[in-house]
């Protein structure tokens, strides 16, 4: 049973003048616990697709169904609520709040969810320990390396135990060792907590670890490869 479905999904810019198709007639299903990469050349629509699934962007035509609900029909606050409770985002450029410490950044989503302070702190510390940043709890992003910042971003995305983690080129700015560490962490969480991971990436290392590889070209589905085992 697919939990995320895209149906005849189109994203068209400048539709009235010179249309540019960012996504074209995309029909995809994602199952619970998938570890999927979306690949393709620059401008193929990978990030746009993730933004559509995460409710950050709205389709020109077609629909995105999450747990059977078309998220483009939801009101703005419902979409934000949906993101808050179901989705963890990992952005290519980390997107940490510069004035907050690693611990505060990771706690942020749980605070928005109005969880207990004690629970927030314990969970945030636990996840930061998981990503190997136990000694950086009180460091601000400017005091961390790129790899460490990306690990904080991953910890933030995972801390609230979302159903889906959408990661936009999470290893793009990382060295080889940091990238492998990050993939190990995400693979473990995928296995242990059954979180669904959808990555957009150019990185061969990520593609090799994925169990499904969706290839987009010019916004359209080119190949959907599911690996055995």
């Amino acid at each position: 049973m697919p939990i995320i479905q895209t149906k005849k999904l189109y994203k068209i810019y400048n539709e009235d003048t010179i249309p540019v198709y960012a996504l074209k007639d995309l029909n995809l299903d994602f199952e619970v616990g998938e570890f999927t990469t979306i690949v393709g050349p620059s401008g193929s629509g990978k990030t746009t697709l993730l933004n559509m699934i995460g409710g950050l962007d709205v389709p020109t035509r077609g629909s995105v169904l999450v747990d059977g609900t078309d998220i483009s029909t939801l009101k703005k606050n419902q979409v934000i609520n949906f993101r808050l409770h179901h989705i963890g985002f990992v952005f290519q450029s980390y997107n940490l709040i510069p004035v907050l410490t690693a611990l505060e950044n990771v706690s942020l989503i749980m605070e928005l969810q109005n969880r207990e302070k004690k629970e927030i702190r314990e969970r945030a510390i636990h996840v930061l320990e998981e990503v190997g940043l136990a000694d950086k709890l009180n460091s601000r992003p400017s005091e961390l390396s790129g790899g460490q910042q990306q690990r904080v971003a991953v910890a933030r995305a995972l801390a609230s135990r979302p159903k889906y983690v959408l990661a936009d080129e999470p290893t793009a700015n990382l060295d080889s060792k940091s990238a492998m560490n990050l993939l190990d962490i995400m693979a473990r969480l995928n296995k242990d907590e059954s979180m669904t991971f959808i990555f957009s990436t150019h990185d061969q290392r990520v593609i090799e670890r994925a169990r499904r590889v969706v290839t987009l070209v010019d916004g359209a589905l080119y190949e959907d490869l599911k690996k055995e085992g």
């Binding site: 808050l84 942020l108 928005l112």
Partner: peptide
């Protein structure tokens, strides 16, 4: 603006 965008993308409601 970027900070605001991060907060809303993570789930902060606009009225908050």
């Amino acid at each position: 603006q970027k900070e605001f965008a991060i907060l809303v993308s993570l789930g902060m409601k606009r009225h908050i």
